[in-house]
Amino acid sequence: MSVEPILKGRNLVKRYGKVTALDHCDFDLLPGEILAVIGDNGAGKSSLIKAVSGAVIPDEGEVFLEGRKVNFRSPIEARAAGIETVYQTLAMSPALSITDNMFMGREIRKPGFRGKYLRQLDKPAMEKFARDKLSELGLMTIQNINQAVETLSGGQRQGVAVARAAAFGSKVIILDEPTAALGVKESRRVLELILDVKSRGIPIILISHNMPHVFEVADRIHVHRLGRRLCVIDPKEHSMSDAVAFMTGAKEPPAEAVAA
């Protein structure tokens, strides 16, 4: 591999009791690319991205960000390093507002005395920012940016989570099934957003079960099987049925793809 990956995992192992979710798994994300990760349910895709984003600490193996070894002990540390993740579970606090959720853990304080000593939050600034980001995503919410997240539909929640990651990710954005609950139109918006983020030069990891989406936006496809990377394929050289066949084990992956 000629280019140094921006995010790299080597020999990652994660066990949950008797279940081995990650089995000596390697992983590479190249600068500026959209890398899709596909695999059966339970193949270990979410475990993989959790291991590189600090949500779980791998039992073995190493993670490198821009060539430097990192040991994230929490998502906060990964986030501080510029890795933003939309987890499959969305990680939202249902009773709190859209704004509260978007700024969770990175709240903006008022300037001057009130912010510094009274630690008062700058709610108008946060609301404006949240509203702008949601509008960019087509989630227009002019009057009710302060409604509780639990009053949103599943798709709307997903939209807010994606907007949050896209707004704050500076080095890597990870999306674990961001369109799973979305309708046709909404999925399209998210795909556009993904391409938009890419055009800003930020690489993306996209986990998805939706093959047309994957083949539409991905530069490379990481096929995950039984807790490890089976192969990496180029969507321009393989068909969707090939990808599904590798994923399910119906077909042997091409030798050169395995080496990648």
Partner: peptide
């Protein structure tokens, strides 16, 4: 509030 609502979500969202 976030910790009381859902501690796991709060942790993932970046709350200590």
């Amino acid at each position: 509030y976030a910790v009381g609502d859902d501690p796991e979500a709060a942790q993932l969202a970046g709350v200590n």
